[in-house]
Amino acid sequence: MRRIISVLMENEPGALSRVVGLFSQRGYNIETLTVAPTEDETLSRLTVTTVGDDHKIEQITKNLNKLIDVVKLVDLSEGQHIERELMLIKVKASGAQRAEIKRCVDIFRAQVIDVTSTVYTIQVAGTSDKLDAFVQAVGDAAILEVVRSGVSGISRGEKVLSI
């Protein structure tokens, strides 16, 4: 099962490499990984998506918690949550294709953020599934370049991950 684990950790040199190292060292897989400082600049927030059964996920969270730099973490997939990923995608857009692509952009509530006579650069935000669907809708033939941010997530409602 796919899980989204959100980690608050010390914003220290080496902290990220310890997290990444843990995954490779113990044979856990990383599907996406994002990290950036929070409003409190001593803390970073890291989101990792991974797949595994309950036993594996339990081991992952326990071992992450053991890292000295990790302050707190939550498996967002255990509760109601919101996930978002950002994609920047450059597609061929000339002739009849141009209108077709624009329609796709509207359907997915994406935005064209840069234009040339032959190329659209589009920004799409949403769940990873939605981004996958957009890529499919546009079709391989049209795609020139895809950049995805990896998943960020947050719990719904009152629940917060903070110290």
Partner: peptide, 16 residues
């Protein structure tokens, strides 16, 4: 050293 020893230490420090 911090990199080489990372998987076999409880923790490590690089003095800044």
């Amino acid at each position: 050293m911090v990199g080489v020893s990372r998987p076999i230490v409880k923790h490590s420090f690089l003095v800044q």
